[in-house]
């Protein structure tokens, strides 16, 4: 009887801890304050690189950074599961929570192809037709006789949304596209798969793939202002967020180091515009 009571007691304690997501007060708990940053994977490397500098001046505040994509970050912000959302997209109209936006800059998105396709330049129409699967062989755009293989990202990707809006318009991505979960996986797939074409956030070294010019423009990190295809990675914070959270967002917006991670900017550091 006693052992059954012990078992039920232990189960009650464990169950309440698990179901409530926290332990009872008498079990002790962390006193540190936590800030969660979630969203676009394109911003993670930059945020992680500069975060220690902020944490050094904010003792007792622990910051967790996690990816998941722009959609996930914005959803999590709306549901109060994250304090700061990193997103390449504007919050959807259905998002009822008032938020403040901290623009980080521009993140160029380039079309990258397998090196031996024999094409350097595409019109916007050709690029859209390729990604939609309407052009099935590089010969159709003046290249080598190689079948086209399209590589894309999941629907949670902000880069995908930018390409959908700016390049494809009303068309959909080819149903034969290979879906890869990260920028790096897209890069590797494009590099190794004959005839492959995909889109990349220009945050990583892009050697061993062919970066395609679009219309009359060629991508160069030095002339990023002229490149027409880009996302605008931003941090989103709830208007009612604690001061510490807003302070962190301002800090992250103000570090020039983000250019080292492919996020180019021309705004004055610290500038924020409310939505």
């Amino acid at each position: 009887m006693s052992s059954r009571r012990q078992f039920l007691h232990a189960m009650g304690v464990a169950g309440s801890g698990v179901l409530l997501g926290r332990w009872p007060a008498w079990a002790g708990g962390p006193e540190a304050r936590y800030i969660t940053i979630m969203g676009a994977t394109s911003c993670i490397s930059y945020v992680k690189a500069v975060l220690p500098e902020w944490e050094r001046t904010h003792h007792g505040v622990k910051v967790a950074v996690t990816g998941g994509g722009s959609y996930a970050g914005l959803h999590a912000l709306a549901l109060a599961q994250a304090d700061i959302a990193m997103a390449d997209l504007a919050p959807p109209g259905s998002m009822a929570v008032p938020v403040r936006r901290y623009l980080l800059g521009r993140l160029p998105i380039v079309l990258a192809a397998w090196p031996h396709i024999g094409v350097d330049r595409l019109s916007w129409g050709q690029a859209g037709a390729l990604l939609a699967g309407d052009i099935v062989n590089w010969r159709q755009v003046g290249g080598a006789d190689v079948p086209v293989v399209t590589v894309s990202r999941p629907e949670s990707s902000g880069a995908r949304e930018v390409v959908q809006q700016r390049v494809l318009g009303t068309r959909r991505f080819s149903p034969d596209s290979i879906i890869q979960l990260s920028n790096g996986a897209v890069l590797r797939t494009v590099m190794e798969t004959p005839g492959a074409v995909g889109y990349l956030e220009a945050t990583a070294p892009m050697h061993r793939v062919r970066i395609l010019s679009m219309g009359s423009r060629s991508f160069s990190p030095h002339a990023w202002r002229l490149w027409p295809l880009y996302a605008e990675p931003s941090l989103y914070v709830r208007v009612q967020a604690p001061k510490e959270v807003r302070n962190l967002a301002v800090f992250l917006q103000g570090r020039p180091k983000r250019q080292d991670f492919g996020i180019y900017f021309e705004q004055r550091p610290g500038q924020a515009d409310a939505r």
Binding site: G67, G68, G69, Y71, A72, H75, A76, L79, Q81, P154, E155, S156, I179, L181
Partner: peptide, 12 residues
């Protein structure tokens, strides 16, 4: 499940 967990967080 892995691909879309990010797209559709809990309570959506």
């Amino acid at each position: 499940l892995l691909t879309d967990l990010a797209l559709m967080p809990a309570r959506t």
